[in-house]
């Protein structure tokens, strides 16, 4: 979301999140198969202190980890139903990044260095929502020049570029808009900002991945305003570093990470398929409070 708190917090935060997704069907549906990626990640930058998933109708949950080690809560509803509620409640402690500033002067060659064990291949090639074309490549070259001389600085330039030419427009795009389409229209939501910045980075050989999560903006309303998406860049010897092109800044302790992937398709908070003629309508409420 574009609004933000004026001050970047100088310390970690304890945040309580309630994320409710309600599906209504206008006719009975059955055989519904669903995956939820709603559990906040635990890593050096945040700790998930508590997490609970409530389902209505109440069915068993099977948990596994996907290819990118995101936690997946899988559940199935075989009998007829007219609605489905998925509610997660979690408590997260975010921390300041202790790694310090991003290293400067990293070239693309450093990605092939002997100590680089990260398997970033998936994050430099095309994916479902991040395809490549000449327009994307040209847009990136116009910003960073013929070759990348500093991975992080150049990635940030690309992110700043996206922020400066894009208009935030929640009514323009939809969840299936890909990077190329969003770039053509220069509008979209956080998901599109992230996809376009990722596409620009990958076109220049910079490993870039998608992050889905929440942003705590200090508001206390009921509306769905906290779901957010941003991206991360891989820096050899440092790790993945986050940039939020929607807000044009590094992610800080107001950001809660849920899942990562090549693009939105790998990191969807709730996804599923069902059988039946019923049309689906969707209601989402995300509330974040300081705990």
């Amino acid at each position: 979301m574009p609004e933000s708190l004026p001050n970047i917090p100088s310390e970690g935060m304890r945040l309580r999140v309630r994320h409710l997704t309600r599906f209504h069907y206008d006719g009975p549906v059955l055989d519904s198969y669903n995956d939820a990626k709603l559990c906040p990640v635990s890593d050096p930058l945040q700790r998930c202190a508590a997490y609970n998933l409530r389902l209505d109708p109440d069915v068993p949950i099977h948990t596994h980890h996907d290819f990118y080690l995101n936690r997946v809560d899988h559940f199935e509803l075989h009998t007829q139903h007219l609605s489905l509620e998925v509610e997660s409640n979690s408590l997260v402690e975010t921390r300041l990044d202790q790694r310090g500033a991003a290293p400067t002067g990293l070239t693309l060659e450093s990605l092939h260095g002997p100590g680089v064990n990260e398997n970033y291949f998936d994050f430099i090639v095309e994916s479902k929502f991040v395809s490549q074309n000449v327009a994307i490549w040209k847009e990136a070259v116009d910003i960073v020049g013929q070759s990348v001389t500093d991975i992080w600085a150049d990635a940030v330039k690309l992110g700043q570029h996206v922020h400066s030419v894009f208009a935030y427009d929640p009514d323009w795009t939809h969840v299936h808009t890909n990077a190329a389409e969003a770039l053509k229209d220069h509008r979209g939501v956080c998901q599109d900002y992230a996809h376009v910045m990722i596409a620009l980075c990958r076109s220049q050989g910079i490993p870039a991945r998608y992050v889905s999560g929440y942003f705590f903006n200090g508001k206390t309303g009921d509306e769905n305003e906290a779901s957010h998406a941003w991206m991360e860049v891989f820096l050899p010897g440092y790790g993945w570093k986050a940039w939020d092109p929607t807000h044009n800044r590094e992610a800080d302790t107001r950001y809660i990470k849920l899942a990562i992937g090549r693009d939105y398709d790998d990191a969807k908070p709730v996804s599923g398929r069902f059988r039946g003629k019923g049309k689906q309508s969707l209601e989402v409420i995300v509330q974040i409070r300081q705990a």
């Binding site: 596994h64 980890h65 996907d66 290819f67 398997n119 291949f121």
Partner: peptide, 27 residues
């Protein structure tokens, strides 16, 4: 994925294989 980490097979060849199933990881 030890064989990839030990650089016996470059990761891109496995990850770009058409029939590599990311969904099947860790089963």
């Amino acid at each position: 994925q030890k064989i990839i980490k030990d650089r016996v097979i470059p990761p891109q060849y496995v990850l770009s294989a058409k029939h590599f199933r990311r969904e099947f990881m860790h089963i």
